[in-house]
Nucleic acid binder design. Structure first.
Lengths: 345, 345
DNA sequence: GGCGGAAATGTCAGCGCTGTCAATGGGTGC
DNA sequence: GCACCCATTGACAGCGCTGACATTTCCGCC
C-alpha cells in the first residue's frame, strides 16, 4: 500500500540499455566520460521506462539533498514572487526549494536550525532580509559549510555573494524627484532597524537633501518598521506637527499607503497638499489612490540569480572567492500620482 | 570539504546508550515497545551527541521523504500566511514543507508532476485553489496514493478531506448586510471561473437577493478573475451603465479595491454614493480608504489543520474514509466603512 | 522452580544510488 | 607486432537507516 506504483530503478534502466548501473548514474549526473552513443542509448532507456532517480538514494550515496533553502523572517508579500522566481530556476536543475520561515526574535531559532542542518545537507540557502544579516544564522550555515546567497544585506562587499539593488542611489533619485517638485520640508519614515535597506535608503535621502542644502528636521524622521500600522502612527505625528512636511518619503509602500490613509483622515488634498513616495512597487502601490510613486525592484530576477549562483557553485565546491561585491540589479523609479508640485506657501 | 562536520550516526548513539541501532531507531520513531528507562538512556545519548537522524537514510529505508507538498497556482498574498501556518505544524512533526507553484495553464504540468512524484515520495500534499479541483493533479496524486487535503474545493463532500469556510453563507451574510443598508441595485464581480469559491460566493449572493425579492440584473454581474486590473474594468462597466448600482459586491478584496479606485475616478463620494464589499480580509482591506467591509478567513488555522490532517493520517495508512464533508472553519464578517446606508434616490 | 507468553531488544539484509578503484578496449608510436 | 596510454565502462562496497524476523528477557502463575 505504501507504494502501489513500484518505481523504476537504475538497475532496470541499466539492463535495458545493456550497461552497468554506474554508467547510467554517469549519464544522470552529466559526467563527461560516456561515449555519445552509450549516452543516447541510456537516455532512450530512461525515457522508455520513465525512470526518475530516487532523491533519497542519490542523496544518501552522495551526501546531498537536492534541496535549496529559502530562509525568511516574516513571510510577506514579495516572498511569494521571490519564491516563484527561485523555484523556476531550481526546477531547471532538479533542485527543490524549501521555504523556511524563521522568527528572528525567537530563542528557538538555534535549535531549529541545528535540527534542519543536521537532518539534511542543503545545497545552499538564500537569505532574505533581515536574515541576511543575522549573525547566528550566518554562523551556523558557515559552520556547516553550506553556500549562501544574501539578499540586500547591510554591507556592499562581503565574503559571500549577495544581491540587491542600489538602495542608496534609488533613495537619492526619489528624493531628488521630490526636491525637483519644489518640496523642501520632507519627512522620512524608516524601515526596520535591522534591515540593510533601511540604512541605505535613509542615507540616500540624507545625502541628497544635503546636496541641495536642505535641512533634515529630526522631528520629521520616524521609524515605521516597514509596517502599515506603524506607518499610520508616524504619519500622524508628522502631520500633527506645528510645521508639517509637504512631502513624506516612506521606506516602503505599505508605510506609504499608511501615510496616504492618514492624510485622508486629516482631510488633506492628495497629492496637492502632501506628496508621498513609497519603495518596492508592491501590489498595493497601484491599488490605492493616488497611486504611489515608488521604486520597483526586479524581485523575480533577484530570485533567479540567487538560485543560480548557488546551483552554479556546485561544480567547483571549493567555496566562494574572498571578497565579493554585491550583484547590483537595476531598479526603476516609477512616478505615479502620489507626488506633485509643492503648493506655494 | 563536502562535509567538514562529520555527522553523528545512529550507531554512535547506540554505542553510547549500549543498545542496538534498531532500538535507537524505535525511539526516534516513537514506537511503543521500548522500556521507559531504555528510552530515557537513548534520549540522553541523542542529546549528548546532538544526534539528528539523516533524512535521506530514513527515507531510503522506509520509502518516505519527510516532505509535505503545498501546491498552488499563482503564489498570491495569502500564500505566505498559509505557508507560515503549515510550516509551523509541520515542524512539530519534523516534516518539511515544500512549496511548489504550478501553472494551471501550462502543458508542462504533467511532466513536472511526474518528475516530482517519481523523485520522492511526498508524505502528503495540500492543494490550494484552483489546484484543489484540477483533475490531472488530483489524478496523479491519487495514482501515487499520496494523501491530499484540498482547500476550498468546489464540492462540499468528496472522497478526500477538504477545508474551507462556508463561502455560501458568508456571501449571504455580506449581501444581507448590503440589503439591510437599503441597497437594492447591487453589482457583483465574480472571481476566477475555476475556483470553487467563485461559485459559492455568487450563489450566496443570488440566493440572498432572491430571499429579499430583489432582482439580480445580469448586466451588473461581471467576471474579474480575482485580479485588481480586471476589477477596474468590471467596475468601470458597471459605473458607466445607465442605471448604475448603489453597491458592488466584489468576490475578493483586490477587486473591491479596484472598484473603489475606479469609483474615485468617477468622482463618487465613498461610501455615500457607492458601497463596496470585498472578501478575504487581505492586508489591502485596511490599507485603502474607505477601509473594506469584508469577510475574514482563518488562513493560518486552515493551514495548520491541513498539515495536521496529513500528518495524523500517517498511523493508519489505509487511506481516508469514503466520503468526507468539508471541514468548515468559522469566518467573520468585518464591517468597516466601505459600506453605508444607500442614498435616497 | 519451571513454564508460557508477552514485552523488549537484537540481527541482518537491503532500500537505490554513487565513490573508488579496477578492468577493458581501442588507438598511437616505434 | 608490441608496449603504452587514455577514454570508457564495470565491480563492489557502503551511505545511515529501518523492515522482517529471531532472540532474549521479564513476569505471573501453577
Amino acid at each position: 500500500m505504501t507504494s502501489n506504483v513500484p518505481s523504476v530503478t537504475i538497475q532496470e534502466v541499466a539492463d535495458l540499455a545493456k550497461v552497468s548501473p554506474k554508467t547510467v548514474s554517469r549519464v544522470i549526473n552529466n559526467e563527461p566520460l560516456v561515449r555519445a552513443d552509450t549516452r543516447a542509448r541510456i537516455l532512450d532507456a530512461i525515457d522508455q521506462l520513465n525512470y526518475r532517480p530516487n532523491l533519497n538514494a542519490r542523496g544518501l550515496a552522495s551526501n546531498r539533498s537536492f534541496l535549496m533553502g529559502l530562509f525568511c523572517d516574516r513571510p510577506g508579500d514579495y516572498l511569494s514572487e521571490f519564491q516563484a522566481g527561485a523555484v523556476e530556476r531550481c526546477r531547471e536543475s532538479s533542485i527543490h526549494l524549501m521555504v523556511e520561515p524563521w522568527d528572528v526574535e525567537s530563542p528557538q531559532i538555534e535549535n531549529q536550525l541545528d535540527t534542519l542542518l543536521g537532518q539534511l545537507r542543503l545545497e545552499g540557502v538564500i537569505l532574505l532580509p533581515p536574515l541576511s544579516d543575522h549573525p547566528l544564522v550566518l554562523n551556523k550555515l558557515h559552520e556547516a559549510s553550506i553556500p549562501i546567497v544574501r539578499i540586500a544585506p547591510k554591507h556592499n562587499v562581503s565574503a559571500t555573494p549577495s544581491i540587491g539593488i542600489d538602495d542608496y542611489a534609488a533613495a537619492r533619485q526619489l528624493t531628488a524627484h521630490l526636491v525637483d517638485l519644489g518640496h523642501r520640508r520632507i519627512g522620512f519614515i524608516l524601515g526596520r532597524p535591522n534591515h540593510g535597506a533601511t540604512e541605505q535608503r535613509y542615507l540616500g535621502f540624507v545625502d541628497e537633501m544635503r546636496a541641495h542644502n536642505i535641512a533634515v528636521d529630526s522631528k520629521l524622521v520616524q521609524t515605521g518598521n516597514f509596517v502599515f500600522a506603524d506607518g499610520l502612527i508616524c504619519a500622524e505625528r508628522m502631520l500633527r506637527a506645528a510645521d508639517p512636511p509637504s512631502a513624506i518619503f516612506a521606506s516602503n509602500d505599505d508605510m506609504a499607503a499608511a501615510v496616504i490613509s492618514m492624510a485622508r483622515k486629516f482631510g488633506l488634498d492628495l497629492p496637492g497638499q502632501l506628496s508621498v513616495t513609497g519603495f518596492d512597487d508592491a501590489p498595493v502601490a497601484r491599488m490605492i489612490w493616488p497611486e504611489l510613486t515608488t521604486v520597483s525592484q526586479p524581485v523575480a530576477a533577484m530570485a533567479r540569480m540567487a538560485a543560480d549562483l548557488i546551483i552554479r557553485l556546485e561544480p567547483r565546491r571549493n567555496g566562494w572567492p574572498e571578497r565579493i561585491p554585491r550583484h547590483l540589479l537595476d531598479h526603476a523609479m516609477i512616478i505615479r500620482n502620489s507626488t506633485a508640485r509643492a503648493a506655494r506657501r
